[in-house]
Simulated scan of single mutants.
Amino acid sequence: MLLSVIAALVLVSVVVVLTRGTPRPLDAGTPAGVVQGYVTAVIGGDEAAAADFLEPGQDSRCKGFESIAPERNIRVALVSTTQRENTADVVVSISYTNVGGPFGSPEYASEESFDLSLVEGQWLISNAPWPLLVCQGQEFAP
């Protein structure tokens, strides 16, 4: 009887973990939805798709720099969204795991902010935080 209960608990745990799935997609017409789409593209290494979420020519930090491939073990969570008439700020928490080193922490996180502008009825990112910065027309550097 005890083994049956343990087996049932293990089975339920496995089902919960496997059906947890990916995060629920946010409305792509909102600032948070735009950031979610951008982050998904950046982490997936799809620079062309990521560029579709950027306001053209707004991020001057790309001059003379290459896009940096994002960390492999990165997780991004929505913290807050502040939406105004023509601008918005989306704050995210970026967590890095397995960052190594003999005494390194297995995980660290920082809060970063995306700036968005409403351009012809569409929210576009005018400033992305450095850990997730994609420079249009440039390949990812290692």
Score class of each variant (00 low, 15 high):
Q122H: 09
E111F: 00
I125A: 05
G104V: 02
V79C: 03
I94M: 12
L78R: 06
S105F: 09
Q36R: 04
E107K: 08
D27N: 15
I94G: 09
P56D: 09
G104M: 02
S117T: 06
G101K: 03
T30D: 11
A48S: 13
A49M: 10
D59I: 07
G100Y: 02
G33F: 01
T87S: 15
L78S: 12
F114E: 03
D46G: 03
I125S: 04
R61H: 11
T82M: 11
T30H: 11
V42M: 05
V76P: 02
R72D: 14
Y108V: 12
D59C: 12
Y38I: 11
E55Q: 15
A77Y: 06
F53A: 15
E107H: 05
E107P: 01
R72S: 13
Q58I: 00
D115F: 02
S110R: 10
R75E: 13
A109Y: 02
D89S: 14
A77L: 10
S93K: 09
Y108E: 11
E66L: 14
Q122N: 09
I94S: 11
F65W: 12
D115C: 01
V91M: 11
D89N: 10
E112I: 00
D46K: 04
N98H: 07
T97R: 10
D89I: 08
W123D: 08
G37I: 04
F65M: 13
E85W: 02
L78E: 08
A41G: 05
T40V: 07
R61Q: 14
L26Q: 07
G45L: 07
L118M: 14
D89H: 10
S113D: 06
G101Y: 00
D89V: 11
N86F: 07
N73F: 08
P25S: 14
E71R: 09
A28T: 08
E66Y: 10
Y108Q: 10
E66F: 12
Y108H: 10
E71A: 15
E120Q: 15
T81F: 03
I125V: 05
A32L: 02
T40Y: 03
L118N: 09
T81H: 03
V92M: 11
F103G: 10
G44E: 01
